[in-house]
Design a protein around this nucleic acid. Structure first.
Lengths: 102, 102
DNA sequence: TTATTATTTAGATAGTTATCTAACTATCTA
DNA sequence: TAGATAGTTAGATAACTATCTAAATAATAA
């Protein structure tokens, strides 16, 4: 696959890449939907899926790298929560994609 | 990968899948950016990329299936153009994802 | 009708990603 | 400190996707 650099994309386009790729997976969108209700530890999330913890962890890493979620430690648990601000940004970005003149 | 059915997703979620997957690729976003300026035939688009026509055609198929573009024939050429309405819908969908209460 | 141009489809391949099991790290508790 | 709980990292594998070349389809021109 062509890299971002190959296509001469800037930092904003690169982060859009990550964001859309993160949102493209149904498991990850389900994670986001769960976190929309309330922040959750990994084990609490895991109840809702038929995948192993390492797989879930993999998806969390992708969402983290896309800036869509954050976490903090509470004792032995890692509590994940939604980053609301970046969603608005992506929605704006997408909206502008149409309405902005070049 | 888990299918949409496995996750019990509805038709809207499934189309979101396609949309985000389509937008996740930088080449496809570049196609959309080009079409934002004006509708183009495949050969006209091809000038802007270092990939073969079959590869470009592959990307166009994905964008078509996601509902993001359409085409019409003009003689020997297929003229592709942006579907503006679906972009607004995705932007709205994304915006609601945050702001809507469950 | 034959050749040419425009584009897609088919089939193969290489790179990426989602998944698993096994092993590791971090925190808490006894 | 030893054991238990919570989660991540490592390494392997199977499925998916982007790409290519070659062949097929569609419309036009000679």
């Amino acid at each position: 696959m062509l890299s971002c650099q190959t296509l001469g994309e800037g930092i904003i386009a690169m982060s859009l890449n990550k964001t859309f790729a993160a949102l493209a997976d149904p498991t990850r969108r389900k994670i986001l939907t769960l976190l929309k209700r309330k922040e959750l530890s990994v084990n609490e999330m895991a109840i809702n899926f038929d995948i192993t913890l390492p797989s879930l962890s993999h998806h969390l890493t992708i969402l983290k790298n896309a800036g869509l979620i954050s976490y903090r430690r509470r004792g032995q648990q890692l509590i994940y929560s939604l980053n609301l601000s970046i969603f608005e940004e992506v929605a704006k970005e997408l909206y502008n994609f149409f309405n902005k003149k070049i």
